[in-house]
Design a protein around this nucleic acid. Structure first.
Length: 517
RNA sequence: GGCCCGUUCGUCUAGGGGUCUAGGACAUCUCCCUUUCACGGAGGAAACACGGGUUCGAUUCCCGUACGGGCUACCA
């Protein structure tokens, strides 16, 4: 027998924007598949019509694209197991067929209970002291289903068009064991598993049936999903068994969950709003409520940084390397290095990753990207020296190691593109003395007579002017900074002056002096 | 409540019987660099949840407890 081709799938339901935890699941699926030369598929599990959100599927595809997670097969790219949307597969009767097969073999049954009847059953059990009421091997005996009703009664219900579901007939008292790639052997007694609904009354399959049928039909080798599925995995094992598919059952891997940065519980959209970080890869606006959620992309994160950061939530390479390209992640990924416990998300570390990727950019590349933004933001003309690549490259060089996001280049460096109107009051209050005016006037004069206006000359001029005026450089350096930039702290002073050039420096000094006098 | 999974610095984690004086990164603190603030450099503080076993020896294996997380729907 030949070795089964590695095929993984990411199978989200289109109920809204893709959470970063979902992106991480997709990433791990992708990394594992690629590491082994396999395929990564995207399947849409839209079996809950009440929760369907238009645009969500497009969002998912766009998010994976942005991250550089390439879909080999599935929604948006097609493939030989089409369709890849479960609602469309349902139309073809795929799930019904297998549900009926299980009924025929005695492993599933029809249930006619109404919502009220189910509610009554639960209340009854709770009243009797059962804290976890379930529709299971015990309670099904008291309910309205093809196990308790006569064949005629069942036929009558069908004839009358009474709605029904198909439930899994879970045996009692059996130890169900399976091997999880991350957790090892997991065993659960089948008496604890409820008779899960396989097919809903609207004809749609539930996740339990649908993912199994599709995983087998699509020849999935590894089912990688969140830890929230671990408790229902035994039921899934049973379904494989009842369908005679144990041999083609994929290997399961249950990933640890992403936890809130603070407090208890898993990471949620609310945490992002509350703590001010994105929880989604891209911006999203809910078509029904109009509610907006912000994304990493729009917040200025590089997709490479986002992916790198996500990979380290629950996985590690076993070495001290932290910066990984997608190619390197693929090369090094393995389930042995996936941690078992949930990972608390740290927004600060996320920023750090972005900073690292920003550092890797050349000043030229950053300057290039900045040109049009600077032009429009500061209202500059086409021939303004400040949008020349020479000026921009120097400005970026001054700024680059001080920021974490490209947008900060402009926010934190605005004074490089525009003379200040306001000057740091605190510095002025502390350092400015009217008698310093003569020094600055002398400085302006000396600077204007410079033939070559570079950092060496400017530095020397400042020092010599100070010396002649009998002033210590410490008294005027920060003032000088405030006069030209408005701020008490910022990029290298002399480098900034050289960047500005003689005329700009003198203009700014004159403007500032007029203001403080 | 029941069931399942988990538990190494504040956080992400390495290490899986002796090499652990428990390593790295983020955050934090100190110093250096810088007449600024960052960056960078050096250094510091900071963890094996607890209790029992097993063993010559346990952070590492087993059990229990505590704590955390998840599940407990005709949602995924």
């Amino acid at each position: 027998m030949s070795i089964k081709k590695i095929r993984t799938r990411f199978a989200p339901s289109p109920t809204g924007p893709l959470h970063m935890g979902g992106v991480r699941t997709a990433l791990f699926c992708y990394l594992f598949a690629k590491k082994h030369g396999g395929d990564f598929l995207l399947r849409i599990e839209d079996t809950d019509q009440s929760r369907y959100v238009p645009g969500a599927e497009e969002y998912i595809v766009a998010a994976l694209n942005w991250c550089g997670i390439q879909i080999d097969e599935g929604v948006s790219v097609g493939g030989k197991f089409e369709p890849y949307r479960q609602s469309e597969r349902k139309e073809q009767g795929i799930y019904l067929k297998y549900a009926k097969e299980m009924i025929a073999s005695g492993h599933a049954y029809y249930a006619f209970d109404t919502a009220d009847e189910l509610e009554d059953m639960r209340n009854r059990l709770i009243a009797a002291g059962n804290v976890a009421p379930q529709y299971n091997h015990e309670t099904r005996k008291t309910m309205s289903n093809s196990l308790t009703l006569s064949a005629k009664e069942v036929d009558d219900k069908f004839a009358a068009g009474v709605p029904y579901v198909i439930r899994l007939k879970v045996p009692s008292g059996e130890e169900i064991t399976f091997t999880d790639l991350i957790r090892g052997e997991v065993t659960v007694n089948s008496s604890l598993v409820d008779d899960k609904v396989l097919l809903k009354s609207d004809g749609m399959p539930t996740y339990h049936l649908a993912h199994i049928v599709d995983d087998v039909l699509m020849e999935i080798s590894h089912a990688i999903r969140g830890e929230e599925w671990l408790p229902s995995a035994p039921a899934h094992i049973l379904i494989y068994r009842f369908l005679g598919w144990e041999a083609s059952m994929p290997q399961y891997a249950h990933l640890p969950l992403l936890l809130k940065p603070d407090g208890n519980g898993k990471l949620s959209k609310r945490d992002g709003d509350r703590l001010g970080f994105p929880v989604f890869p891209l911006d999203w606006q809910d078509p029904n409520t109009g509610e907006k959620s912000s994304g990493y992309r729009e917040r200025g994160y590089y997709p490479e940084a986002f992916v790198n950061m996500l990979a380290f939530l629950g996985w590690n390479p076993g070495t001290e390397q932290e910066l990984f390209t997608m190619e390197e992640l693929i090369q090094h990924f393995s389930f042995e290095h996936v941690h078992k416990a949930g990972a608390r998300f740290d927004p600060e570390k996320a920023k750090w990753f972005n900073e690292q990727y920003l550092r890797k950019q050349t000043a030229e590349a950053l300057a290039n990207g900045l040109q049009s933004v600077v032009k429009s933001k500061f209202n500059l003309g086409n021939d303004d020296i400040k949008i020349s690549s020479d000026y921009l490259v120097k400005a970026v060089t001054l700024l680059k190691d001080r920021v974490q996001f490209e947008s900060e280049l402009i926010e934190k460096g605005s004074y490089l593109f525009q003379a200040p109107d306001v000057y740091d009051e605190q510095v002025l209050a502390k350092k400015w003395k009217p008698e310093l005016a003569s020094f600055f006037n002398a400085l302006i004069e000396n600077l204007s007579s410079l033939q070559v206006f570079n950092s060496v000359a400017v530095d020397a001029t400042i020092k010599s002017t100070a010396a002649t005026s009998g002033i210590k450089p410490g008294e005027i350096m920060q003032l000088l900074r405030v006069f030209v930039s408005g701020q008490g702290a910022g990029v290298d002073l002399i480098g900034m002056l050289e960047l500005f050039g003689k005329n700009e420096v003198i203009d700014r000094l004159n403007k500032a002096l007029k203001k403080v006098n």
